[in-house]
Design a protein around this nucleic acid. Structure first.
Lengths: 264, 264
DNA sequence: AGACACACTG
DNA sequence: CAGTGTGTCT
């Protein structure tokens, strides 16, 4: 038996909106630790890892670990039927083939329950090592989203260069080129408006803007985003979800040779 | 000679927006009692009945009853040319083949008139008996609209069950199933946010969500909607239009056998 | 011309 | 919070 109650149901709605365009089907793992998901995007290029910790829920019970395979578009469709301030409860039997979403309006006048059919999904759970990164940039999520959107109108690849002073996003395309530099600023009043850089070693990596723009759909979840990078390793784009957990996106950098392949 | 002046011209715009997708051509009846329309939708499944009482207009004159056949899409197109707070006056000669819509901006700075060609339309005027219903549900129109929209994303038929405690909307589809229950609440401060149930006998009827969603286009006309139901009889979905009249939609329930036909 | 994003109002 | 209306971008 699995049961999880989240008073801030709107968070779950936003979580699904942020990954349903990237991943079509995925297994949610319900364990005593929490409610989590790890999946490759449908083109098998990037990886999404979601964790909602059990202690972040208002009630949580997972008698034994179960895995629930869902079509994320269908799940999102059902969650759209919840109000943004509804309380959402998920329930599933250990051996059942459905999951139930219960929505309670804040005043309890309206109670809905939606039953979604589960599906069997092959999934390779990758072990993701907890690395120390050469550079970690923390910046306002909306600013990162804006930059990725703007640069995508010029080119399709962004070169991210981090030095101790700041982070530079560069692209080149048919019509010209662009560089956007964000300087470190710890001086701003509000922490969520700060851009901070932790640097062990300067890094300089290229990524496909198309995926970064997909990741940026998680912007409504958090004021800030964290980019963690090391040479030749996938970037980690992380959005914290209140005190509930986080969603992390992984994307391998483009290598020069690969860029040529893309053009072909 | 027919002439009717409505200071709240926006109401007429909304009325047309709410029926033009359901009914393409219809006769408006202009009589001393008021301005009314009764028509089947284009697939001959549901029925629309509109009544705007003469005393709700700011000026009203109908020397003798006339019937004006119009293409509702064309009429709606013309009304779109009126501002939402324009004063609208309709005029027609007894034997003419056109109707004139006059729009006056609130400050009288702009006066337009649009002439629409009338057409001959066959119409069978059905007598609608004034029944006592087994159950009448009054609820916020926006909530009804939301429920019909949400459920249509899951299934195509809704089962409406009314008991003295509340009204339950249920559907089933390929991806799963859903139930939304609204409890009676007369305690809320504002009457337009209340859900109230008048019950002689519990009822349980199925309807095609497609039509209910068309009916719900009338939501901008009123804060509340009334659903009147009796076993095996068409549901009446009524929106009051200020103190001007009402618009009523009728839809026959699905019978089990009919549902099977739909699948074929 | 249509769709999306933003800002505003109920 | 949600719907509407506007403005912008594709």
């Amino acid at each position: 038996m699995f049961e999880a109650r989240l008073v801030q149901g709107g968070l779950l709605k936003k979580v699904l909106d942020s990954i349903k365009d990237l991943v079509t089907d995925a297994n949610f793992d319900c364990s005593p630790n929490g409610f989590s998901l790890q999946a490759m995007d449908s083109s098998h290029v990037s990886l999404v890892a979601l964790l909602l910790r059990s202690d972040g829920f208002d009630h949580y019970r997972a008698d034994r670990p179960i895995s629930m395979g869902m079509n994320l578009n269908n799940m999102a469709k059902m969650l759209k039927c919840a109000g943004n301030d509804d309380i959402i409860t998920m329930k599933a039997e250990d051996a059942g083939d459905t999951v139930t979403f219960m929505f309670e309006s804040p005043n309890q006048e309206r109670i809905s329950d939606f039953e979604l059919k589960l599906m069997d999904i092959d999934s390779e759970q990758l072990g993701i090592p907890d690395t120390d990164y050469a550079a970690t940039v923390k910046m306002p999520a909306s600013e990162f989203q804006r930059i990725c959107k703007d640069l995508a109108s010029i080119g399709d690849t962004v070169l991210i260069s981090v030095t101790k002073d700041g982070v530079k996003f560069s692209t080149t395309g048919d019509i010209g080129s662009a560089n956007i530099t964000c300087r470190q600023n710890t001086s701003v009043d509000k922490p969520e408006e700060q851009t901070t850089i932790e640097l062990n070693e300067p890094v300089c990596l290229s990524f496909a803007l198309r995926y970064l723009n997909s990741f940026a759909k998680a912007t409504p979840l958090s004021h800030t985003v964290t980019l963690s990078m090391s040479k030749e390793l996938p970037v980690v784009v992380e959005y914290r979800i209140g005190d509930l957990g986080h969603i992390r996106f992984y994307l391998a950098p483009k290598i020069e040779d690969e860029e040529m392949e893309d053009e072909a």
